[in-house]
Design a protein around this nucleic acid. Structure first.
Length: 693
DNA sequence: CCTCCAGTA
């Protein structure tokens, strides 16, 4: 164990090495103390130094790329400087986007506090279900990038805004990529609009190249000296993070799970200086197993030492369990957090000094040939590895132990993670762009173009469900479908439900399926959970079972105790109530009245079929598996489905999951007659193709 | 016959 780490391979995490204006070194020692002023100084100082450069770049360039590590103040200080410099005068707003709701709220609160105003006045924010702004008064508006894209449907040129700052652009979420493409398009019509792209890594150079339109002829004529420079300005700002020494494994490890356990114990046994440990593994199973192993091994090894305090962290945990990790460890004890990728960006834990990085995460890959999403354990990129390492240096200098060799790091790992848009099903994305008036999807200026196969699959499906016509233009139904913040097939189900007089039930089902899971985390109590689910189960399948759960929840007066009793996640149910309200309102705005079928489940199944007919599967003669109508793949009903043991002849499903087999999750009973009825064209065509084959 | 990285309108 003592020689586990290759001593020669220790090296500090690299920082961006591009030269920028006014760049100066800040001695790390300046941030070592933790006196009362610590917070204020470390947030204000780094970006303040660049204030004049930043404002100059924004004034003279259409696009400014700001590279800065976490905590440099780019998200909180820069909007204030823009405001002070007059960018919000004349009734125009400064928009600042974040990829996550929690980040929007946090940053808005901080900025409002620093400016000494209440949130919702000069500084406001807008996220789903929460609009906290005052029209006419709000000058700086924080919002998720998804909300800004929604706003563009009503105001395609974002004419309210003088500046749009897109934060965390390096994460390259689908919405960030779409937003950046759209902003580039808007700037052709509105050269005065300023775009600021804030990113933590050097991939920002690619983004800058994407926005460099200096070689193109401007679309809008204006005196040359009035137009901003169309070559993006770039600036780098220091963060407040400390140096992290990185240690690579000397040999490849055979099991990252066991290696992470032994590394944790070594840190503990070798009496490394105090500081908590964060371990990155891939999934809930790994995390729970590691927590178990570390706890028992630590007890065995050292009865008299105060020992380790081990907590799991993953999205499926209840809010209460997630909060445990933020509690400081008692004096003399070391906290160990075993986490999935959630701790890489979404959750920041104070006090971490050691990071153990397995080098893997679960990543989603969409295969356009089979039209199936798979979740696979895959090596992370070097950018992810640096991000994970950086988590050790937020409070003081730290160490990162990588469970892979330096050779693997340098030669086998990709520099950047493949952008999500190139790993995704594009059905929703294509519809969104169509709704924004972008007719030629293939020629859209993508930051990273998805494969043409993936785009064709999306167009095919949108055509099949009647959202696009033969010219790939939005149909009237398509315009309605685009109004809903749910997947197109789900929106189609909602819109079909009124003709079956079950729109009230349909919005409930859509809301229930839009949350991650309504069940509490069930590790070690699988039987209990199965029983809880079975008590709501009906022969029609999972959708109607969910309906049953929701109606029971209402009958129980939305009681948290009732949820606890039935192993239902109360927070998830609160979200369901909100989503349901929003979807109902949208349906009513389109002129539909919310009607209930009063227990006639046939109407509900027909509405589900009308939305999801492209996900129809037929039981094979063996009676053991299903055959997907579209594509012909062999499928199985997932064991979590209430239909797992009943095997109806025909089913439609909401999603597929691939492990060793292809599993259909959220399955509903259907009927071949209904399939022909809701999509005669689609099934006629399939039938002909099968006879010819 | 047994599964769920992370977000979001």
């Amino acid at each position: 164990m003592a020689n586990f780490w290759k001593p020669g391979s220790e090296r500090p995490v690299t920082r961006p090495s591009v030269a920028f204006r006014g760049d100066e070194e800040i001695p790390l020692g300046l941030f070592e103390d933790s006196s009362g002023n610590f917070e204020k100084r470390r947030h204000r100082h780094p970006i303040y130094k660049h204030r004049h450069d930043l404002l100059y770049l924004v004034k003279t360039h259409a696009v400014t790329v700001v590279i800065g590590e976490t905590g440099c103040g780019k998200s909180t200080q820069l909007p204030q400087y823009l405001n002070e410099a007059g960018w919000a005068e004349g009734g125009r707003l400064i928009a600042c986007t974040q990829p996550r709701r929690i980040a929007v709220q946090t940053v808005a609160l901080r900025v409002a506090e620093e400016m000494g105003v209440t949130v919702g006045a000069e500084v406001g924010y807008s996220i789903r279900f929460e609009e906290v702004t005052t029209p006419g008064k709000t000058k700086i508006k924080f919002l998720t990038d998804g909300v800004l894209i929604r706003e563009m449907m009503a105001d395609p040129l974002l004419s309210k805004y003088s500046v749009v700052m897109v934060d965390e652009a390096h994460e390259r979420s689908v919405t960030t990529d779409i937003l950046l493409g759209l902003l580039k398009k808007i700037q052709k019509r509105r050269p005065e609009l300023r775009v600021i792209i804030a990113s933590a890594t050097m991939d920002a150079a690619n983004v800058a190249a994407f926005f460099d339109t200096s070689a193109e002829k401007p679309k809008v004529s204006a005196a040359k000296e009035l137009l901003p420079d169309r070559k993006p300005g770039m600036i780098s700002v220091e963060g407040r993070s400390h140096s992290v020494r990185v240690h690579f494994s000397l040999e490849p490890v055979s099991s990252y799970l066991l290696a992470s356990v032994s590394t944790t114990l070594s840190i503990h046994k070798l009496q490394e200086p105090p500081g908590d440990i964060l371990i990155f593994l891939t999934g809930q199973d790994d995390v729970d197993a590691a927590v178990q192993l570390i706890t028992t091994e630590a007890e065995k090894l050292n009865q008299k030492s105060p020992g380790l305090l081990v907590w799991p962290l993953y999205a499926g945990l209840s809010r209460g369990d997630q909060e445990l990790i933020f509690r400081p460890a008692p004096q003399g004890r070391r906290k160990v957090i075993v986490s999935t990728n959630i701790a890489e960006t979404s959750v920041t834990i104070p006090g971490i000094t050691y990071v153990i990085d397995s080098g893997f995460s679960k990543q989603r890959f969409y295969n356009p040939l089979t039209d199936v999403d798979a979740l696979v354990v895959a090596p992370i990129s070097r950018a992810s590895a640096e991000q994970r390492a950086g988590r050790a240096g937020r409070m003081r200098p730290g160490k990162c132990f990588r469970l892979y060799t330096e050779d693997t790091y340098c030669n086998d790992m990709k520099a950047e993670t493949v952008p999500e848009i190139q790993r995704s099903n594009l059905v929703s994305t294509v519809l969104q762009l169509k709704a924004l008036g972008i007719d030629n999807i293939m020629r859209f200026d993508w930051l990273a173009p998805p494969s043409s196969e993936a785009m064709i699959r999306a167009l095919e499906l949108l055509f099949a469900i009647g959202v696009l016509d033969t010219d790939a233009k939005l149909t009237p139904l398509g315009h309605q479908v685009a109004e809903f913040p749910v997947e197109p097939m789900m929106a189609k189900m909602l819109l079909s439900s009124s003709s079956n007089s079950c729109s009230s039930e349909a919005v409930t089902i859509a809301a229930m399926l839009s949350v991650q899971s309504i069940w509490v985390s069930s590790k070690g109590r699988q039987r209990e959970l199965d029983d809880a689910r079975d008590s709501f189960a009906v022969v029609e399948g999972d959708h109607v079972t969910y309906l049953n759960v929701y109606e029971s929840f209402l009958r129980a007066k939305q009681s948290p105790q009732w949820c606890h009793q039935h192993l239902i996640n109360y927070q998830a149910m609160k979200t369901v109530v909100d989503v349901r309200k929003q979807l109902s309102r949208l349906l009513q705005q389109l002129g539909f009245t919310l009607k209930s079928c009063e227990g006639d489940t046939k109407g509900i199944l027909k509405a589900i079929t009308a939305g999801f007919f492209a996900n129809a599967a037929e039981l094979e003669p063996s009676g053991e598996s299903y055959k997907l109508v579209r594509g012909g793949q062999q499928m199985h009903i997932h064991p979590s489905s209430v239909l797992f043991r009943t095997t109806p002849k025909w089913v439609v499903f909401h999603s597929v999951m691939v492990t060793e087999r292809m599993y259909m999750r959220e399955v509903a009973v259907t009927d071949p007659d209904w399939l022909f009825e809701v999509a005669p064209h689609y099934f006629e065509r399939r039938k002909r193709r099968q006879t010819h084959a």
